[in-house]
């Protein structure tokens, strides 16, 4: 949980890259960050579901985040990571191009997502953080993972 030393108006974010853009999720939703490992394809799933991985004995689904957000694809590199997030008791891995840092940002500096109607569907965003000259796009994981809505069998 969040340490008491942080003022309640501040949030800690895990910042990562998808292509050139910087995205982030609340650190409270992140369980761990893993290097890319063997991913087993699962047939009859939407294309953004990359497959399943073995996380210390549990089987976790992995989402190709860029496919999910309709961003251009890129090859896997040394920097590619899987961020394991937990949303509503559901652990899911997300493939990102690189994890850059963990930063603290004041709630005041987070705008509502419709300010930048960028390349990503607005429902997948929960806000835009401004820090110095950087724009951090906060993701709405509930919507992205689609909790509560079963993955449709293709």
């Amino acid at each position: 949980m969040l340490e008491k030393s942080y003022a309640s108006s501040e949030v800690q974010l895990v910042v990562f890259k998808l292509g050139k853009e910087e995205y982030s999720v609340s650190i409270l939703q992140v369980q761990e960050i893993k290097r890319i490992t063997d991913i087993t394809r699962v047939p009859h799933t939407p294309d953004y579901i990359k497959g399943v991985i073995n996380l210390r004995g549990s089987v976790l689904p992995v989402i190709d985040l860029k496919k999910r957000l309709n961003l251009p694809q890129q090859v896997l590199t040394e920097d590619t990571r899987i961020i394991i997030v937990k949303v509503d008791e559901l652990s899911v891995g997300m493939i990102v191009d690189a994890v850059s840092e963990v930063m603290t940002i004041d709630q005041e500096n987070i705008d509502s997502p419709d300010v930048v109607a960028g390349s990503v569907a607005a429902s997948y965003l929960s806000g835009v953080g401004k820090l110095d000259n950087r724009l951090l796009i906060l993701l709405n994981l509930e919507e992205i993972i689609g909790v509560g809505q079963e993955v449709k069998v293709v």
């Binding site: 699962v42 047939p43 009859h44 399943v52 549990s58 976790l60 993955v151």
Partner: peptide, 13 residues
Amino acid sequence: KSLGKLLAGIKII
């Protein structure tokens, strides 16, 4: 092992 809630709809697995 179970595939989890997210992938529960896939019948042939």
